[in-house]
């Protein structure tokens, strides 16, 4: 069985007429790196919140590691398995020092303090923030804060990390740091990653991309395939990456180019 199984899910927010999600089917395997892209209001954040029971589907079912999310008994089990990182790094850090913040999750799991210490130090090492244990969070940069938030999730030893537009509020430096961390966690630590974003550029490392629009899944495919489908990207209200756009134009004016996904590949193909 897959790690996450979403079966025919509808979701309707109270006091709203249109469904935020309708007929969503998706299964995610252990160790995968999935990107979910879509414009504002496409339902991608709602989908994320279904994965760790912040929301329960109006219709259909979500299974995490076999646990049904609609059963209240499973709520805390699922939340420990699926960690969630939010957009604003400031609004998810709870403690006055980095180590206390990372310890927050394990403390909630009622682990003994020597185990918490071990996990805190290891998680900080993994996100490249070792040595920042006693820093107050408000003195860190946005990218650093977001990596602390990721460490706080990793310390709970989840099977899967869901990141809901983790880079939307960061500067280019911070964005790079966070993406590098995400990639490392997936490739080296084997953690399943679900990255929700509206930046196409951030999805090139993923195994599969899920394109959402109007509460429905429009397409699920490998990045190379999705990136070539310019019509699909445009219809979903997203910006086509410059390199892809350029390659496309060059191709239509007669140049023979392989498929490219970012500037680097385009440069290599051209020179």
């Amino acid at each position: 069985m897959s790690l996450i199984e979403i079966k025919d899910v509808d979701f309707l927010y109270r006091e709203q007429e249109n469904k935020a999600l309708s007929g969503v089917n998706l299964s995610i395997e252990k160790g995968e790196f999935i990107s979910i892209i879509g414009s504002n209001g496409s339902g991608k954040s709602t989908l994320a919140k279904l994965l760790n029971v912040l929301l329960v589907p109006t219709k259909g079912q979500v299974f995490v590691d076999g646990f049904d999310s609609s059963d209240p008994e499973n709520v805390w089990k699922i939340r420990q398995k699926v960690g969630m990182v939010f957009q604003n790094p400031d609004n998810q850090l709870v403690a006055t020092t980095v180590e206390d913040d990372v310890a927050f999750g394990p403390e909630n799991l009622a682990l003994p303090s020597d185990q918490i210490r071990e996990r805190v130090d290891k998680s900080l090492e993994m996100v490249g923030m070792g040595g920042y244990q006693s820093h107050p969070p408000h003195e860190l940069s946005g990218g650093q804060k977001q990596r602390i938030a990721i460490a706080g999730i990793i310390a709970m030893l989840p099977d899967c990390v869901v990141l809901d537009e983790p880079t939307a509020m960061l500067d280019p430096m911070g964005r790079k740091e966070v993406l590098k961390t995400i990639k490392y966690l997936n490739e080296e630590e084997g953690i399943t990653v679900i990255l929700i974003t509206h930046f196409m550029e951030e999805t090139i490392f993923s195994d599969r991309i899920v394109v959402m629009d109007g509460g429905e899944i429009k397409e699920i495919d490998k990045p190379a395939k999705i990136f070539q489908n310019i019509e699909l990207i445009k219809n979903a209200g997203l910006d086509v990456p410059v390199a892809v756009q350029m390659a496309n134009e060059l191709r239509s004016s007669g140049l023979n180019l392989p498929e490219v996904m970012d500037i680097e590949e385009l440069v290599n193909a051209l020179c």
Partner: peptide
Amino acid sequence: RADELALAMESRCYQGGTNRTRL
């Protein structure tokens, strides 16, 4: 902020002050 923080805390398994340990 309080709203978002509450979500973040819940998704980190915060279930109130009881049964917590300390670093």
